[in-house]
Design a binder for these strands. Structure first.
Lengths: 341, 341
DNA sequence: TTGAAAGCGTTACCAG
DNA sequence: CTGGTAACGCTTTCAA
């Protein structure tokens, strides 16, 4: 059994309360006594039991991240790595830790929700990829549980950090129009997700302003589904000469489909992705991508969550928008003629 | 404040002890009473406070994963996604959760170690990429703290799940030899890591048996460092016609370096990676890779850890080896002549 | 400045 | 089968 304050107290000939004060750095302790207690603590390598402390202080110093995807969907997705590693980086300079959970099915969602929040396992949660009508959000709100949304401001005024996805979709599309592409499709994610919808909306705006015909195709996340969807798009719509794709990973799928269809990139097919992940440098000439500054988004989201948890988020504007930025590479620049395949 | 057993007891006109029994599913409760209590619990959506429970039972149902890399190193690395998502998948069917931490510097390591283990925040830890002489391991052992090593059996008899990395290195190398490559280099990870060393050892064995000259180059993890190292290798050793690379992600860097050096793959340069990640399908013709069956490794490691935590690992063989398997694709098959670049 | 003691919400033991 | 009660290890009043 681990050594307790009680033990330390006995060994240092003081009361357990005094040991607690020394641990807490309470100034109301005679320097001499403090020294004696610290000595004993060091000697026995004492560390306070975080479970007992949690029970008293009602804080676990744990933040939860609940992912809605299946393990399979997560596997090769660099967005996930980026997201998690950025959270870890942020938290490593705070007293908080990260508790990750995965809950693909509705049933699991419910369960994880209960297990994480209602049992008070974590102090707050970061939610990603939640639909605007997400049930969890209502429950979170009604329970007054600290949370922050990433990527889904929706219409309401919930604490969230997001990109202007409509604008991001616009930027990507406008860039392709400016490069002279005339039949531009949009390959997006599953229906019902705000990201999918918003970026498609921006795409529509730009396309319509340019007097072109919009074409939006929904697909599941991931390389293979995107590839299949892109194959179908290319087969069905022969004139297609460019694609905006919901994320870089899916864009890799589209690029693979183009190769199979013997369409050189960017001359035969222009491609723009989102997230500006490390995947972009993996395709010859590079993949043009709209950087959403995820690092910044995550940092802001974590900061906001901790402030909410600690009650320091008083007059703070709940919604925050982090600007996007187009990173132009070979996959969309016709003049460069950086052929691949 | 969340509702407690005390409250439930009052509302159901029973003692708090009885409520506890109902929660625990103790059979020694009058069915009628049980029903009444459950009714009240449902009504108020009662969930036991995990912090109080942890304090009593001395179990947090949390397993820790401590990563030694920096957030930057983690970013685009699909091995990390794979690893974590597999753990999550496994744990989601158990009552355990995952607590991830990152600790790049020695100082942080020490700190995270204390914070996670000595404070009893988690029930056990999964260690990856630890050097064989890792200080943490000794401490873990002397404290009797449950842990399992992944990827580093070293010489000792610690609980671990691993691949036979020497064999994996051999397989990869032998394959290139069989394909007729005659000047094969090995681009490995940082020095001092068992994986780096073991795979290089297998490489050396195969190379020497074939009467070729070994060439091992160390590099940091990640795309960019690997690319830089590969560039240097290709510049310094002109005859080089194939490379075994420590992981797929780094192999992507090597492939990029080859493209810059105008070496077509696989005719100009044969490449074999490790891990068989989704990256392999991202290069035209595919990247040949030694699958380490990470999914299986992770599953075994998690299972073993939980057994150790729960004291069910009695006579169990501590070390476990999961077999590797070569996945042949275009990047190493000369006959196919699937040129890229 | 220090100590005694009251919880925090459970589990588990011991009587009845 | 049920209720009372003592921990679990800590923080935080309240007196001294």
């Amino acid at each position: 059994m681990r050594i307790t304050q009680q033990e330390i107290a006995r060994l240092a000939n003081v009361s357990q309360a005094t040991v607690s004060r020394v641990v807490a750095g309470d100034p109301r302790v005679e320097p001499e006594i403090r020294e004696r207690v610290q000595q004993v603590m060091r000697q026995h390598n004492y560390q306070p039991d975080v479970r007992a402390r949690s029970l008293r202080t009602r804080q676990t110093h744990l933040v939860g991240l609940v992912l809605k995807r299946t393990p399979e969907d997560l596997q090769g997705d660099p967005f996930f790595s980026l997201f998690v590693s950025e959270i870890l980086g942020f938290l490593s300079s705070t007293p908080y830790h990260l508790c990750v959970d995965i809950a693909a099915s509705e049933l699991r969602q419910e369960h994880v929700y209960d297990e994480l929040l209602r049992t008070r396992r974590v102090d707050g949660v970061i939610l990603v990829e939640s639909a605007p009508s997400d049930d969890r959000i209502k429950r979170l709100q009604s329970e007054g549980f600290p949370f922050v949304l990433v990527g889904n401001p929706g219409a309401s005024n919930l604490p969230s950090v997001d990109n202007d996805n409509v604008l991001a979709g616009r930027i990507a599309t406008q860039h392709l129009i400016d490069q002279g592409y005339t039949r531009i499709g949009f390959l997006t994610g599953p229906e019902g997700l705000t990201v999918s919808h918003d970026r498609a909306e921006g795409y529509r705006q730009a396309i319509c302003e340019a007097g072109q015909e919009p074409l939006v195709v929904y697909s599941d996340f991931g390389f293979a589904p995107a590839r299949a969807a892109a194959q179908k798009m290319l087969a069905t719509h022969r004139g297609l000469d460019a694609m905006v794709v919901l994320d870089d990973y899916m864009a890799m799928g589209a690029i693979d489909a183009a190769r199979e269809a013997h369409l050189p990139i960017p001359t035969g097919l222009g491609v723009v992705g989102f997230n500006d992940t490390s995947l972009c440098n993996l395709v010859p000439g590079g993949l043009t991508s709209v950087s959403l500054n995820i690092e910044e988004v995550v940092r802001q989201a974590c900061g906001k969550l901790l402030r909410i948890i600690e009650g320091r988020a008083d007059g703070e504007e709940p919604r925050l928008i982090v600007p996007s930025e187009l990173k132009i590479r070979g996959s969309s620049t016709r003049d460069r003629k950086a052929a691949m395949v």
